[in-house]
């Protein structure tokens, strides 16, 4: 916990905890994916998680909305602890949006149906209201003209923006991004990152797993560096890139920058 505290600015520290992980451990068979993660994400904070592949970044954020089940430790999301109680899981999932590396849009539904499905059936919104919100969101991610198309007819960048709009339609308090730009062609990455920047500016609490260093530096409030299922360093972007505390972080940065 001490590492977390040093990276927290006073302003951040005063805010409410949105996600609180204490001693989270997770095994896949014999392989330990998470080796005791302590992490706190504050309200309206943008936290970027970095690290080499296989370091447990994705597993960590997938534990936060229980796509993976952690075996030890506690995760508290917006005051609700993640247990096996189904009602808690449903509640957390409807408050936590998630964007995947492979978009995972529903290929048999049009863009607008992709976005309105969950608000209508999970949030029990009226169809008119759901459609109105969906069109607003498509406007916000910059593709209002694609509403009636099927996902297969869109470019990768457009699909990922639809996926973001689909998550936002549930009006989540927290957004999780699992390498949102890793499956995209280079020229499409910026269009997705721009949407994410806009989202960060609007005050959304975000946890982003990414390899986009420019984005991390510009948008993140704090950076987390993970390796072998452990948090190696938590730091503010300035210090992380110019004056990293850990040697391992220095090595990582020297490899990718």
């Amino acid at each position: 916990m001490t590492m977390t505290d040093t990276a927290l600015s006073e302003e951040l520290a005063s805010r409410r905890d949105m996600i609180e992980c204490v001693g989270v451990k997770k095994w896949f068979g014999d392989f330990q994916a998470l080796g005791g993660i302590d992490l706190t994400v504050k309200e309206q904070e943008v936290m970027v998680v970095l690290g080499p592949s296989g370091s447990g970044k994705s597993t960590l954020i997938r534990c936060i909305n229980r796509l993976e089940v952690h075996q030890e430790g506690t995760i508290v999301v917006d005051g609700i602890e993640l247990t096996n109680d189904l009602r808690n899981i449903d509640k957390i999932r409807s408050e936590v949006g998630m964007v995947f590396q492979q978009f995972n849009l529903f290929p048999h539904l049009t863009v607008i149906d992709n976005i309105t499905l969950a608000p209508i059936w999970v949030r029990k919104k009226s169809k008119v209201e759901a459609l109105r919100v969906a069109r607003e969101l498509l406007e916000r991610v910059g593709i209002p003209e694609q509403a009636e198309k099927f996902p297969g007819q869109l470019s990768g960048g457009q699909q990922q923006r639809v996926a973001i709009a689909r998550s936002l339609a549930m009006e989540p308090n927290i957004m999780l991004f699992d390498e949102p730009t890793s499956a995209l062609d280079p020229e499409m990455i910026s269009e997705v990152l721009d949407v994410m920047k806009g989202l960060a500016e609007s005050g959304m609490t975000m946890v982003v797993v990414t390899h986009e260093m420019g984005f991390a530096r510009e948008v993140a409030d704090r950076l987390v560096f993970m390796e072998d299922g452990m948090v190696v360093e938590i730091n503010n972007p300035e210090d992380f890139f110019t004056n990293p505390k850990s040697e391992r972080t220095q090595l990582f940065l020297s490899q990718i920058l």
Binding site: S94, F100, M170
Partner: peptide, 9 residues
């Protein structure tokens, strides 16, 4: 996963 993440039953 996408359906679960959206909270669909």
């Amino acid at each position: 996963e996408a359906s679960d993440a959206l909270g669909l039953t």
